[in-house]
């Protein structure tokens, strides 16, 4: 039974995906201006995964992300001003200008961090789930990771423990086919159907079209509820694709332009808009209103970030210890 959204939920879904798209495009511009430094990994093309999965969570569920974390943070409705300020290293950033692009935190939203060591967030998610279980809380942890992380020992150790203890973890594997610049065929023994690894650990797992936000919701919602009601961990492999480089430093010489163009025909935002228009869920007028408002949100975020202060040098020594 395909999922159907009412107009309000559909517009919100569109708005979040569009916000991520435009925010990320703006990040690229600010990087070229030199206002964002370091590594910058954009989520363009993968929006349906974050929005579909995160909008299926409750407000007090935990999210653990990776270094391509802007999309997850925006889908979780972290303040775009605070995210942009973080990317510009300002004191008003969500992590006080200490984390940058790869390390966004907002505990008030259950957003427990972006983690930049591939796979390092999986045991953290298992630990958070341990605390939920120990304290008999009504929460789940949603843990995002990429196809690259599947080759880390962390993946196997974490799936094993999560299943052994029947912990409330929703593992979301974003398979965008490339670990940085290496295609999965060159790094994984099978190169496909990564979700089957979960079977070895007795974890229910499924593979979905990560370019289809409705498919993500349709799959995520019952699996999240299964986990929430004590059914133990689950794993969702979302097949997706990044339309841009691994980071802004990516020479892009390892992907065929035809492959990129083919994936762009599956653009998750266009796909969702086509669906909504054809089903008369919302109209072009609605889209125009949202587009204008999202552009303003992004402009405001840049303005806020640019006008924010750098952290004081003395603040460098704070929060090393309690």
């Amino acid at each position: 039974m395909p999922i159907t959204l009412d107009k309000q939920k559909a517009l919100e879904t569109y708005e979040l995906m569009k916000l991520i798209r435009l925010f990320e495009e703006e990040c690229a511009s600010q990087y070229m201006r030199g206002l964002i430094r370091g590594f910058l990994h954009l989520y363009i093309g993968e929006e349906a995964v974050a929005v579909g999965a995160i909008s299926s969570l409750n407000e007090d569920d935990y999210i653990v992300s990776h270094y391509r974390d802007h999309g997850h943070a925006l889908a979780r409705k972290l303040d775009p001003n605070g995210i942009m300020a973080e990317l510009m290293g300002k004191s008003t950033g969500v992590s006080g200008g200490r984390g940058g692009s790869m390390h966004l935190f907002d505990v008030s939203k259950g957003f427990m961090g972006g983690y930049a060591i591939v796979g390092g967030q999986l045991p953290i998610a298992v630990g958070l789930a341990t605390s939920i279980d120990y304290l008999s809380e009504d929460r789940v942890v949603m843990c995002f990771f990429g196809d690259g992380a599947v080759n880390e020992g962390y993946f196997h150790e974490s799936l094993n423990l999560a299943s052994l203890w029947k912990l409330p973890v929703v593992f979301v594997l974003e398979n965008n086919l490339y670990g940085m610049g290496s295609h999965i065929d060159r790094t994984h023994a099978t190169g496909h159907n990564l979700y089957l690894s979960a079977d070895e650990y007795n974890i229910p797992a499924t593979q979905i079209d990560g370019m289809d936000v409705l498919a993500v919701m349709e799959t995520a919602q019952p699996l999240i509820e299964r986990t929430r009601s004590g059914g133990g961990p689950v794993l969702i492999e979302a097949n997706t694709y990044r339309f841009v480089g691994h980071s802004m430093a990516d020479p892009g010489n390892y992907r065929n332009i035809l492959e990129i163009e083919e994936w762009k025909t599956k653009d998750p935002i266009s796909k969702f808009v086509e669906h909504a228009l054809s089903q008369n869920i919302f109209g072009l007028d609605d889209i125009a209103v949202i587009d204008e408002s999202v552009k303003q949100v992004v402009r405001d975020a840049v303005e806020f970030a640019e006008q924010s202060e750098d952290p004081e040098v003395e603040s460098m020594y704070r929060e090393i210890h309690g």
Binding site: S95, G96, G97, R98, G99, H103, F105, D106, V107, M112, G113, R318, E319, I320, H321, G322
Partner: peptide, 8 residues
């Protein structure tokens, strides 16, 4: 603790 600016 440090990277979360004391949130964690």
């Amino acid at each position: 603790r440090y990277m979360s600016n004391g949130q964690i």
